[in-house]
Design a protein around this nucleic acid. Structure first.
Lengths: 125, 125
DNA sequence: TATAGTGTATTAGTAAACTAAAACACTAAT
DNA sequence: ATTAGTGTTTTAGTTTACTAATACACTATA
């Protein structure tokens, strides 16, 4: 996996697992790959995986069962909040960044429409 | 200044100076505050400021004159590219992040319209 | 020429992230 | 009981970012 060297790897792994849950590659109650397996797959040290998982467990997104594995929560509220928070954090972050460039909301909408529509045209695959 | 502890401070300072130039708080040819002054203003070490400035100088966004100061470039192309790149990087980054969540372009537009319009209503100041 | 204000470079020490290797705790299956 | 597969913890060493303090190079000016 390709990581951004400006952001801690463990943090990017957290976000990766958020995404896998949100798009249902990891379903509620499903077992997450073993720590050592993830370390191989993502080509990082097992301790770095463990650090990401520890935080996800603290956040109740994953449930740890010693000797068995780590499992995606089945709590509906946690899962709902997860998707909402991840999307909203990214959108609000963009909004704040563009606002800091003194771009008005109307200009943002115009620009985003142009950008996204141009990407749609390109995506004729 | 408040920094994101997940991203190197020198890198956030680069982005801060990009912004100051884009919104014309720092105009073409204008002198940037002195290294030691910026260190005080942003409450970081002077070496950290210097590292950010070094990269900006390498990128030709700033021009260094020893004994005099650092100055914003007057090169029109560099300045034009600066604004275009900063905005486009942020927008394309959001697009990619939302696409990774399997959100379609149409859904993005719908969501962004809702979000930005809701922010407009709030901003009755 | 001396001084103050610049940018630049060097040396040293600290903290966080990452890697590596090993040990420990628990579970399931043979 | 033993073994393999899990999660968890610990100890150690490296690298990067950051801070701190100092010195050096250049410019303008009193």
């Amino acid at each position: 996996m390709k990581f951004n060297d400006k952001i801690p790897i463990y943090y990017q792994i957290k976000q990766y697992i958020y995404r896998e849950i949100i798009i249902n590659n990891l379903q509620p109650g499903q077992k997450v790959p073993a720590v050592r397996q993830l370390a191989v797959t993502l080509t990082v040290n097992a301790n770095t995986i463990q650090r990401a998982l520890r935080e996800l467990i603290n956040e109740k997104v994953l449930i740890s069962r010693r000797g068995k594995g780590n499992f995606v929560t089945t709590d509906a509220e946690t899962l709902t909040n997860l998707k909402r928070n991840v999307v909203e954090d990214q959108v609000s972050n963009l909004y704040d960044q563009l606002a800091a460039l003194k771009i008005t909301p109307d200009e943002m909408l115009k620009y985003l429409n142009n950008y996204i529509n141009s990407r749609k045209e390109v995506h004729h695959d």
